[in-house]
Amino acid sequence: MRIEDHPVLEFKRGKKISFTYNGEKVEGYEGETIAAALHAAGVQVLSYSDRHRPRGFYCAIGNCSSCFMEVNGESNVKVCIEPLQEGMDVKTQKGKGEIV
């Protein structure tokens, strides 16, 4: 799902980073958000609502709260603006998530 040839833009991708998504190893690039890396890896469902409906991102700029996931054990992280970091543990969120 990555754009390789573009008539106007050139994508200077950062170094490769690996992280886990529901326990599986996934690769992304430094400088991108968790949502961008997951989308590039073919993941569209980020959470399930209280009524078990699948949810993806909507605004991708941190305005709408549609993209909550569990990141390193913390619920309700807006992954559309959260920068990807080496070794992150990212999980599909179910319902409102646990608040510790």
């Binding site: 754009i3 833009l9 961008a36 989308h39 590039a40 991102f57 909507y58 991708a60």
Partner: peptide, 16 residues
């Protein structure tokens, strides 16, 4: 998705 979101994904992150 919002159109702006798609634009961000494509033009900032290079992801379709």
């Amino acid at each position: 998705y919002g159109a702006g979101a798609v634009q961000t994904l494509m033009n900032v992150y290079g992801v379709k």
